[in-house]
Amino acid sequence: MTSNTAQLEQILYRPEEAAVVLRIGRSMVYEEIRLGRLRTVRIGRRRLVPPEYVTAYVELLKREAQAAA
């Protein structure tokens, strides 16, 4: 590969990568997954987070913030 090769868009995040994107801790990501607030897909035994589920989680947080205000 050359430096001119465009990087592929990431279509699935590991929970640790989702934590970085969301700027929260890894354990918080796993807690939100456990609670069903952050959805995932499974491939074998692995849990992965599509970017659209990260976006849906952020929208959920926004709705909760508006409801609390």
Results as ranks from 00 to 15, higher is better:
39 R>N: 14
46 R>S: 09
47 R>H: 02
31 E>M: 09
39 R>S: 10
56 A>S: 14
13 Y>N: 01
34 R>Y: 10
48 L>K: 00
55 T>C: 05
61 L>T: 07
60 L>V: 05
2 T>D: 13
5 T>N: 12
61 L>P: 04
58 V>G: 03
60 L>C: 05
21 V>G: 02
54 V>M: 04
28 M>A: 14
4 N>H: 07
15 P>H: 01
69 A>T: 12
34 R>D: 10
33 I>A: 02
41 V>K: 08
65 A>I: 07
20 V>T: 11
57 Y>P: 05
42 R>L: 04
49 V>S: 01
26 R>T: 10
45 R>F: 08
45 R>A: 14
2 T>A: 13
28 M>Y: 10
16 E>P: 01
56 A>L: 09
54 V>Q: 03
38 L>I: 04
61 L>D: 06
29 V>I: 15
44 G>Q: 02
18 A>D: 02
65 A>H: 12
35 L>N: 12
38 L>S: 01
65 A>Q: 12
43 I>Q: 00
59 E>L: 13
35 L>V: 04
65 A>E: 12
4 N>Y: 08
40 T>G: 03
30 Y>R: 06
54 V>T: 05
49 V>I: 15
4 N>A: 12
43 I>F: 00
20 V>E: 14
36 G>S: 01
15 P>I: 00
29 V>K: 00
51 P>N: 03
17 E>D: 12
16 E>T: 10
14 R>I: 01
19 A>H: 07
51 P>H: 00
